[in-house]
Design a protein around this nucleic acid. Structure first.
Lengths: 139, 139
DNA sequence: TCTTAAATTAGAATAATTCTAATTTAATCT
DNA sequence: AGATTAAATTAGAATTATTCTAATTTAAGA
């Protein structure tokens, strides 16, 4: 009964297959769950709870391992911000975030929706890696 | 031999005196050390190491307590970003940061040095709290 | 000086994450 | 298909930053 031909799932699975990572049951299962509904944001604990609603159980260690490997191979993007937990994002494009301090939920801001100008020069000898904009909001 | 009349120290001490916080030996000592050189960024652990170079020791619990109280009373600002630790900043004005992933050091970007335009509208029912820009750099 | 709420402290507790070491498994090689 | 092996999974221990607890001390006002 699992929805076949979900384009988000297929795209993520393709990236996994092209990576040097092994195509394990756990990884496939995780991708099916995480990418089922397009762009989503979640913590390792969120994933652990969600996954284990089903009869196929995955250990927390594996969830951490997979999320980190997926991030390394650009199947996911990690977002670290105020608060103690790391968030993972199914959107791997360059973009920014709203972060609601009340609900602790993230939502995307398209990169093209924010214009940053006048950025001062990068300190001597350093090189630019990324620009992250977080718009903190509350209820 | 401690430098009297350091304006950064005096300013911070004044804010402390105007706050409901008690003027304890530890708090005075911390302010003298943290504000000695103007704008600085540090973690609780940094402060613990720095403080305990001197003969007057302050416990780690007190350092956490003080840094948090100082933040609540706007003597310091806290900055949370990629990485696991909270940074504290002697600059309490609205501003942004460079974060060097190699050295794990922060440096300030004046608010006026970044122009953000075109920010999408805040989701329904939410209100804006702050906009944080972090420019990640590397060696 | 007396009082008392707030501050300090050592050490225990917590929470997110990573590590360890044993077991299992996917993918490759006959 | 069966054997091989490096990678993956796992439970549980370890780690790290931070907060909590509960006992003691102290600042500041009466």
């Amino acid at each position: 009964m699992t929805m076949k031909n979900n384009p988000h799932i297929n795209k993520a699975l393709d990236v996994l297959k092209k990576s040097p990572l092994k195509l394990t049951t756990q990884r496939t299962r995780l991708i099916e769950i995480l990418f089922k509904n397009g762009d989503q944001h979640f913590t390792a604990e969120d994933v652990y709870k969600e996954v284990n609603k089903y009869r196929y159980k995955i250990s927390l260690a594996t969830i951490y391992n997979c999320l980190n490997q997926f991030t390394k191979h650009e199947i996911l993007k990690s977002v670290r911000l105020s608060g103690d937990k790391v968030y993972f994002d199914t959107n791997t494009e360059r973009h920014h975030h709203f972060f609601c301090k009340s609900t602790e939920k993230l939502s995307d801001i398209k990169s093209s929706d924010v214009k940053i100008s006048n950025l001062p020069k990068i300190p001597r000898g350093k090189k630019l890696e990324s620009v992250e904009v977080v718009v903190n909001i509350t209820d």
